[in-house]
Each structure stands twice: as structure tokens, then as C-alpha cells.
Write a protein that binds this DNA or RNA. Sequence first.
DNA 1: CCACGTTACTTTACGCTGTAAGGAGTTGCA
DNA 2: TGCAACTCCTTACAGCGTAAAGTAACGTGG
Lengths: 268, 268
Amino acid sequence: MVFAGQGDPRRSMTLLWRTPDSVATARTAPGPRPGLSVDVILDAAIAIADEHGMAGLSMRAVGERLGRTAMALYTYVPNKAELLDLMYDRIHAELATDHPTDGGWRAGLTAWAEDLWGFYLRHPWVLQVSQARPVLGPHEYAMLETVAGIMHGTGLPANARRRIISALFQFIRGTAQTVAEARQAASATGLSDEEWWYARSALLTEVAPDFAERFPMVSSMETEGAFQLDDETRPYLEQEAWETFRSGLTVLLDGIEAARRATPTDQR
Amino acid sequence: MVFAGQGDPRRSMTLLWRTPDSVATARTAPGPRPGLSVDVILDAAIAIADEHGMAGLSMRAVGERLGRTAMALYTYVPNKAELLDLMYDRIHAELATDHPTDGGWRAGLTAWAEDLWGFYLRHPWVLQVSQARPVLGPHEYAMLETVAGIMHGTGLPANARRRIISALFQFIRGTAQTVAEARQAASATGLSDEEWWYARSALLTEVAPDFAERFPMVSSMETEGAFQLDDETRPYLEQEAWETFRSGLTVLLDGIEAARRATPTDQR
DNA sequence: CCACGTTACTTTACGCTGTAAGGAGTTGCA
DNA sequence: TGCAACTCCTTACAGCGTAAAGTAACGTGG
């Protein structure tokens, strides 16, 4: 887990909210012309993170991709934590901000959640940026604006809306993270979920022959077919997480419905 | 995020499921008497992780706490990933396994969720162990057994129970992680949530004076008091996450209730 | 009783990380 | 034409997990 907001607050906020104008202003300063720019560095860093994950993102790697040394980056970006903040906010520009509202809040939230889920799976490194001390960049706020707009349609009071938005986030991030880690584990170990599980479960019966008696509820779930998945062609954990996402979302939406019913209309 | 299940599967499963007997057997092997044991190493490692977090947990640190070098540990534990697996399972022994069932599934799930929430806050490093490729140790299964038993009382079909259990996990882990990270950020930066937010929001209005027009929904939530918390004596993010936990849990439980109503009684 | 094989533990070493410090070379302006 | 400002480089440091090799302690077979 990586931290945010370590550097000079003013500098980092200026970088986050900078407009293209402030970049394009003709330079009259002395010294050699800058060969790089914050944007170029961000593109390179994001490309590396997408390809090799957070673990592959090092200052040396970013520099190398741009034909520079690691230290050259420090002219443009105060440090790695700041670079991550900027990457984090910029990548959120990818999210849709115009979910159709005519289908009602339920359809809106579903579309938003699915968009976010896909986004996290395309850029799993985003899940590793800490949520404490949020980045507070324009694109992160744009995403919050989107979901706040949809939630407005529920008619729930403002603080209930805030809490539900947070709960949705936590849930979506968690399930997406499981998929991301499963993929990473598969490619890192060279073992698919199935191969891994096959080897482990064989060892489990060997090392805990009394499993069924020790854990009757878990065993009964197993015999009742709780671990048989709808789509056997997809990697096990991935499919499991997807089903968790789908039905967990349904459960949450049903819960919101219940909260709406419990709220007097004049408060909505 | 740290990975699990890298080493020799047989050795790691044997270590996980080992019984006190197999440890206490009198040794007749040649060579110097072992000065350490897996259990002693686990105690030391867990103590370090509790005190200094995952970042403070290094093989050198564990060795030093036991008056040895880092390399001495490798006689007992194959590598750091395995050590983490063992720590992960052992710490789960702390969780209660006997939640009262007479209050019904709703009371049972609430008690279980609160227990788990407190557990994660006492041992936040647990949240950094990847959920892909689970550890499959006895205490992790004991926890699963507990919640599976409570969920059994809902009468929902087995695969719905599995999915809901997963969803609960993701949600609880996510909210707990936010609190853990907020605490870590506060102690790492020396800035409380409030100080941090005060400085940032001042900069935000400075750098984005048109905030209210650009993000009307977010702003309206703000003016409606969505960010005013119930308990102002606790650190802001911590309190916010706690409220998210409480009301998110309620929403989820209401959603389970709805799923129960939607399931024909003969399928329950 | 003593050498031998096994075991516990240490020392050294390697490649990796972020970034501080200092230096070289390029540029615009007084 | 110098000078200050600026970009970028080299070098260096402490810390990480762990491979490899060496040392010392120990139980046992000859």
C-alpha cells in the first residue's frame, strides 16, 4: 500500500489542478529546454503500472522508458508519492461521467458500479493507492460528482447518501482487488487457480483428514454445491469474485431500497 | 500487498496444520539443540507487525528481536511469504467462534462483523495479506465455519450464502483498511486528519475557485451537512469509516432480508 | 573414545529500491 | 560577455530478501 500527500501540499495541488494553459505558456526562463513534461512522465508511469503492476513501477523504470535516468524525473515531480497521486487522478479521467439518469437511481448505480469495476480491472494498481488522505484531484472529484448525482435520485438524506457511497466503494474495490490479485498470482507463480486449488485440496485432505467433522458448516456448503460456479470457462477465483460482485451489488441495492422505504417521504 | 503460497506446498500445509504433539516429540537428531521454534518466531513476528505494521516487518527485525541474525530464521521457516502465511493463520485464532445463535441470523452476523472489524483494527497488517490464493489454515477455516453457521440460519441457498459471505468480507475489510491507513498516515506524517484536511481544503478553494459550479452534487452534499459526523471527538476519517461500517452493514443486512423474501420457502 | 554426518547459526554478498549531494553542460538576459 | 537559472547525470547510502559458504555444536556408529 502506497501513501499519498507526503510532499509540499501547495505544489502537489497546483500540479493536480493545473490547466493546459499554464503548461502551454511560452517559456522565457534561462537554462536548457525541458526535454520532458509532467504529462509525458505520467503517460510513461501509467503505461508501466498497467503493464507490470505497482511492483514494476520504479523511478528508474520510468526514467529508462523516457531515455533518462531516474533522477531526471525529480525536476518535474517532487517524489514518487506525488507521482502516484498525479497518476491516480489522471487515470480517473477514463471513467464515464454521463450515466443515463432516466432509468432511475437503481439502473444508474448499476451502470456506474460496472464501469468502476471494469476500470479497476484495467488499472489494478489504482487499488493500491491508499484511501486515507485522498488525492483530491479534479478527476477523482468528477467521479464522486457522478455517483453523488445518481444517489441524489434516491431521495435519501445527505449523510445517508455519503455513507452508502462509501460502502459501495469499499465493496467494489474489495471484489475488484481479489480479481486483480488472482491474476497477478497466476502470472507470478505460473499456476492457474485450478491447478493451485487442486494441489492444495489434495494436501488438505491429507493433512486434515477430519476436516468434515471439524468444519461441518463449511463442508455442508461444499456438498450443497456452493462452490460450483455458473461459468466454468473463466478462472475460478475470477468467476467467484464476479458472482460476488453481481450479487453483492444486488444485495446492497435492495438494502438501499429498504432504507428508502424506512425514510419518511417529507425527509426525502 | 504481500503474496501467499509461494513455497513448497507440502511443507507449508504441514506447518499450518501441525499439532502440538508433533512439536513436542523428543528429538534424537544430531547437531546443536534448536534455540528457537516456529512458535517463538511467529510470536516475535506478530509482535513486530502489531507494533510497527507490515512495513516494519523484516527478516532482520524478527531475527534481532530473538537475538539472532535474519538468516537464522530460515532453518525454521522457508521464506518470508511462508512466515506471513503462518502469522496470518495463527492470528485468526483470536476470533470468537461461539457467537450466540439464539438472536437469529441478523444479530449473529452483526456480532460477527463487529468482532471481525475490531480484529482488523487490532492487527491491520492482516489486511495486507492477499486474498487470492488463500492460506487455508485451520484458524482461517474456523472463522469461515463461524460465519457459515450463522448464514445457515438465513435459509438461503448455499451459493447465495457463499456470495453474501464474500461480500460481507470485502466490505468489512475495506472499511477497516481505511481506518488502519488513516491511523498510519497520521502517525507517519505527524498530521491529524483535521489538520491535513484544513490545509488541503484551503488550498482547494484557492486552486479551484469554481469548485461549486464544477461539482454541484458534491457541493450540495456538503452544504446539506453530509460531512458532519456524529462524534466530533474521534479523528475524522476514523469516525467516517465507522459510520460507513455501521450503516453499510445495515444496508447489507436489509438486502439479505430482501433476498430471503424473494426466495420461495421450499427452497430455503 | 573419537571421527563423522547432521544441524544451528553466522558472515558475506548481490541486485533491487528511493533519493540526497554535487557536478556538468545549456540557455536567456543584463 | 559573464552570470544565474535550469536540465540532467553520476555517485552514494541504507535497507530489503535470500543464496552461498563457513563455523561450531551435537548424537551416534565404529
